[in-house]
Amino acid sequence: MNIHTSLFDEQILEVENLQLGRSGSRAFSLVNGVSFSLKAGKTLALVGESGSGKSLTALSVLRLLPEPSVRVLGGSIRFEGRDLLSLNGPDLRDVRGGGIAMIFQEPLSALNPVMSIGNQLREAVRAHEKLDRKATDKRVIELLELVRMPDPERVAREFPHRLSGGMRQRVLIAMAMAGRPRVLIADEPTTALDVTVQAEVLDTLRGLQDKFGLAILLITHDLGLVADYASDVAVMYAGRIVEHGPVHEVLGSPFHPYTRGLLNARPHAGQIACGGVRPRLTEITGSVPNPLDMPSGCPFWPRCPVATGACQLRRPSLSPVGINHAAACFKAEALT
């Protein structure tokens, strides 16, 4: 795996000024001016609530958007120097699964219910390399071992419904690894799983990352997972990145009031009730804005505890607040 080591610290996926939405008579924008890059061996977490645009951003990288209702309206996505948005047909297939693989939230719906795990993995292997039957079977077992599947020979003969949620997700990771990808996009990979299984699946992903120098784009709503598994984080709100930086910077000294709100909204160690009166949680008032009815200025101002008149008039752009750390807030300076 020397090729991968040489790619360390190089940006293999660069998304620049991405715009997603619908043009034409009923135009609206769902993702606006999103930029980020992925480095080999690192995990970037894209964090946000429902409607923040995090999943659409992930889908757009593999050109899996639900077109024509949502399409790329602007920006660029570059993978190892190639412009993904201009790829077509075989070249695109080459990147999908080959260079970039993706796993989804609901593993059961991503597997064919009437085909054994082994056959589905065989198909995945054949899609990427020409091997004889024996070598294919060997590779299938190898992939299952790679994701720490217990008893891989038996699992290969099973059908998806016979496996637990965690095992299904590991089968999908194995499938994703069949093409030896350099980038793995994981869209809420553990949201449908139980906590004990969640940790195992994410540990498996991290193991693969260490072994192959995989760059991971982790889409999640759980800041706890971000703290545990990501190296960098981009916080999205209403289709824009509002704060971006190394995990310990963003979570340790958040600048954007939304990031602060999210961190405080979660009950944490100091608030255990133990029978007494519980301290109030800091809530973010209101709810996420409708993309058809976006507030003017900063999209967060109606819910922001520190908003001023200026926030309603102009939209703050992402500007540096520390080393590699940026936030889109006029008050970011004042908050320190």
Binding site: V195, T196, G224, V226, A227, D228, H248, L263
Partner: peptide, 12 residues
């Protein structure tokens, strides 16, 4: 197994 407290500072 529960995810960590994100405000507890950096920890892998």
């Amino acid at each position: 197994a529960a995810p960590g407290d994100p405000t507890a500072g950096p920890r892998a």
